[in-house]
């Protein structure tokens, strides 16, 4: 039996300790916002936070989370439901296309901004290059990170209109 805090809630999980976090949260806990993309830590769609650090949940066994805290996309809004600054910026910059990779993108960006509140382009590259967006919304992701950081004003829509 594993004891894990998931999005602030204590959970007891009776699963194969080798099961990746990805499948434990999706199938056992019904938290389907975390996505399967490649299974080999190449695409970042499965990114969650383990004690605040971004990890690829498809390649991290649930046993590694025993006694620790997992945060998924479902758990980063404020307690009252207010979206996080990163989530709000993702909406204001109209980032998602298909949206499948965006949980992972948002988790990577959230971790980046926690460590580096005002990241340079190089720091954004380094933190985000593990997350593939097949719809190619990299420019919008970069912009949204800067908007969330407060270093750039919102406005992709005005710029294009």
């Amino acid at each position: 039996m594993l004891s894990i805090s998931v999005n602030g809630k204590p959970e007891e999980l009776d699963v194969d300790p080798a099961m990746p976090i990805l499948w434990a949260v999706r199938e056992q806990l019904g938290l389907t916002g975390t996505k399967f993309g490649c299974g080999i830590a190449q695409c970042g769609a499965c990114t969650v936070h383990l004690d605040g650090q971004p990890v690829r949940s498809c390649s991290t066994p649930i046993s590694a989370a025993d006694g620790k805290a997992i945060t998924t996309i479902e758990g980063i809004a404020e307690a009252d439901g207010t979206l996080s600054k990163v989530q709000q910026a993702w909406i204001s910059e109209q980032v998602p296309q298909c949206g499948y990779c965006q949980s992972g993108q948002i988790m990577s960006a959230t971790a980046l901004l926690k460590e580096t509140p005002n990241p340079t382009d190089e720091q954004i590259d380094a933190a985000m290059k593990g997350n593939v967006c097949r719809c190619g919304m990299y420019g919008r992701i970069r912009k949204a990170i800067k908007v969330a950081a407060g270093s750039e004003p919102s406005g992709s829509q005005e710029a294009s209109a």
Binding site: G33, K35, L83, Q94, V95, P96, G99, Q102
Partner: peptide, 22 residues
């Protein structure tokens, strides 16, 4: 002709969007 915000985007930033695999 206006950049009206997409209706599907809010669900794609909070994990509630339901794809086939979900």
């Amino acid at each position: 002709g206006t950049p009206a915000p997409r209706k599907d985007i809010p669900s794609k930033v909070d994990g509630t969007a339901i794809f086939g695999v979900d």
